[in-house]
Nucleic acid binder design. Structure first.
Lengths: 205, 205, 205, 205
DNA sequence: CATGAATGAGCGTTCATTCAT
DNA sequence: CATGAATGAACGCTCATTCAT
């Protein structure tokens, strides 16, 4: 699309994206019709197609916006921290924070992964997230903070733990982001058999 | 439904479920029409509605069958092994094996989780899987094999690592199930900072 | 589409084509909605798409059926007549007869020529008609019945005269096919300045 | 509409008509949206509706302008030639010239004839063209240059030959207007069996 | 004069489900 | 048991036209 928009147009577009995000997350992408979106905002159908080429394009835009925002949040959280493991930890904490205030996006991404039309969009985002995590892991390996491993696989494992605890504990049980982050970090650090000496106190080490 | 079926009917039903599993996994549930299913098998539409009340019911049956089969495979794999950590490891290995030969099911479950109509079906299966894993973890805690933790959270973390490496390494990269299982177990045992002494050789310890 | 149809299905399909031909001719292709067609026959919308892939496909089928039928009528009319000019004349007469009882088709073909989506369908029919006519002209040239000319151009001119008089006299003024055929043949034989000798061709003078 | 326009307004209107003519001819009237027209000229929608009441009105204006221009070209070509048959020939030649440099209009007129909303506009133009041709034919009959015939029918036949050769040879094969005009005139003079005496008319033999 | 956001009726098409045969 | 024709609500989308700015 890439239409040049007036400020008012920009606002309308954001309104549409926000409302759609909520409806898609609550009702599902397929079960949410364009009619439902425009009716919900009290505008005509044409409005939708003035701002988006299709329902699919809207969804992809939502995804892209979300992925960008999460990544930005992570970079800002890491800031100028220089200790590799601490950087990884900050990244994990910031994503938990971000997901806890963007629950809808989590749902949408999970869905998008199951739909061929969104696969390419999703794969791209996943590659970026993996590359970011892998880099943090590799730094830790290079400085000897963690034993030498396959950084890709380890990065994926970290993302897996984050992802499932975000889903079950954060979104499902609505527990505080920082508590869940503690658990993710604890498990990622020591696994099952490792012996955390004092758990929490160690967490920013 | 729960219709009493002749042996031939039973076979027809299985044919339908098998074909549907493949089509749903390849094309998506929504994009696969009932017409496509019956045409693909060269039968009339009536056949479908003789064996299933609806497309939705068919999908739920597929899910239930799959979950049952996976669970059975795990119990058989654990057998009469009595060391808690070894039991957990056998469970992980057997699920990797199972997913590697039931890739379609993995795809279907990921999708089902995103669809309100299948949520209850999925939640039930997940609760069972979690309870099973949690029990294995708790046994390990009770025998002192692993430090005392929140067994639920830890069990979820284990499932998360399994799940994501199954998706990326097993389904995505089509690597051997046993290699991926090694990686899952390694990460789950020691996390990032733990020091595996020789990895592979340890794996049945 | 090419669905295998039961006799009843065949009948339905014909009903749809017949009704659509009439509506398209009367109201225009674009102004006639699929809804209008199925409502007019008192059936559900699905019926239409059971028999045709799209509105466009239906139209193309109508065209093809018509072209085939006209061509068959011409071949039957020519029969075993062996004098070249007489063969050409029989072809002209039979097309006039055919158009006079298939006025709708004439309208549809004129429209189809103006629409990119039907162009290929139409061009094919026109090539066939031109080739047929050209062959008849060439035979007449070969036997010396008419002077040597560019058979293609002459064939096109004959078709042009036929076409315009069919449109204006036959369809517009609803004059008898045989009268219009006389005029076409008269003009094609002698042009403007030639002096028709036989009574038949002169009768509208 | 009939708005009084400033010179700049007049230019804008012509720009719109010219662009629309090209787009309609290339893409079809129905497939060319008002949005496409104004976007193509880089102006807003308001501009369009300032100069034209509707898309339909624009099209009718294009038609009328074209018909007027063709007629003017013919009258100028005939000039003060006094021999009836020569006048007819000049008219034919000039229309071929005109169509060869206004191919878009030809396409538009063919389309307009198939659309009820433009029928009246087209019929009027055709009546004028027929009347003009008929008058030329009648003059030739009156002076004995051609045998007595039904001038209307003969005029239509002449228009038919002109029309189809314009379409197939001029627009389709892009041959020179004068060559095609020769063929039209040749066929109209002598028909199929007549024997053309002069060299010019024979040149495509 | 000009912009471009907004309207909304209407379109072609899909598809889970039903049911006469 | 099985067929396949039929249903019809619902969908994504288009576009000529209007009008506040």
């Amino acid at each position: 699309m890439a239409r040049r928009l007036t400020p008012r147009g920009e606002q309308r577009r954001n309104e549409l994206m926000g409302f759609a995000t909520a409806r898609f997350a609550a009702n599902g992408y397929h079960s949410t019709s364009v009619a439902e979106l425009v009716d919900g905002l009290g505008v005509g159908k044409g409005v939708f197609y003035w701002y988006f080429d299709s329902k699919e394009e809207l969804f992809i835009e939502i995804l892209r916006d979300g992925e960008r925002a999460l990544r930005r949040a992570q970079w800002e959280a890491i800031g100028d921290e220089s200790v590799p493991l601490a950087r990884l930890e900050l990244a994990i904490r910031s994503s938990m924070d971000w997901w806890s205030s963007h629950r809808d996006l989590y749902v949408l991404i999970e869905f998008a992964r199951t739909e061929a039309s969104f696969a390419s969009s999703i794969r791209k985002g996943e590659r970026v997230a993996l590359a970011d995590t892998q880099k943090l892991v590799q730094e830790a390996i290079d400085t000897g903070a963690i034993p030498d491993r396959n950084a890709v696989v380890v990065a994926q494992a970290v993302l897996g733990v984050s992802s499932i605890l975000a889903r079950t504990q954060l979104l499902g049980r609505k527990r505080p982001a920082s508590d869940v982050a503690d658990e993710v970090i604890d498990f990622c650090r020591h696994g099952l058999v490792g012996s955390p000496t004092d758990g929490r106190a160690q967490r920013t080490a």
